[in-house]
Computed example of a mutant assay.
Amino acid sequence: MRKFKNNLKKVVIKVGSSSITHDNGKINLQKIDELCYELANLENNGMDVVLVSSGAIAAGRAKLKIDNRPTDTSEKQAAAAVGQVALTNIYDRSLITYGYNSAQILLTRQIEKDKEMSNNARNTLEKLREMDVIPIINENDSISTYEIKFGDNDTLSAVIARLIDADLLIMLTDIEGLYTDDPRKNKDAQIIREVTDIKSVESLAKDTDSNVGTGGMQTKIKAAKLATEKGIEVVIASGENMKIIRDIVKGDIIGTYFKC
Rank of each mutant, 00 (worst) to 15 (best):
I137T: 01
D165K: 10
G177E: 14
L172T: 04
G177C: 14
I170R: 12
V159Q: 08
T173K: 08
D165N: 15
Y179E: 11
A166L: 06
D167M: 08
T155N: 15
Y146I: 10
I134L: 08
E147Q: 13
L172Q: 08
A161H: 00
E139M: 04
K199T: 03
I175K: 13
N140M: 08
M131D: 06
S203C: 12
T155K: 14
K185G: 11
L172N: 01
I170K: 09
R129D: 09
E176V: 09
I134V: 11
Y146M: 04
L168H: 07
M117Q: 14
D174A: 06
R162S: 15
L172P: 07
I191R: 14
N140A: 13
D182H: 08
V133E: 02
D165E: 14
R129T: 08
R162W: 00
D165Q: 11
I143R: 13
I148A: 06
A161T: 03
K185H: 12
G151Y: 13
A166S: 15
A189H: 10
A161Q: 03
A158V: 07
N140T: 04
M131T: 03
L125C: 08
K185P: 01
Q190L: 12
D165R: 01
I137W: 02
A158T: 08
N120Q: 13
T155E: 15
E147P: 00
D188A: 09
R193N: 15
P135I: 02
S157G: 05
K199W: 00
T124D: 07
D141K: 03
D182C: 11
A158I: 05
R184E: 11
L178T: 10
L125F: 10
T155C: 07
E139C: 01
L156M: 13
I198R: 00
N123M: 08
E202I: 03
I175G: 10
T155H: 14
T173I: 06
A161D: 01
S200I: 01
E126D: 14
N138C: 00
R122V: 07
A161V: 02
S203Q: 10
E194N: 05
E176R: 09
D167E: 12
R184Q: 11
L128Y: 04
K187P: 12
I170N: 10
E202V: 07
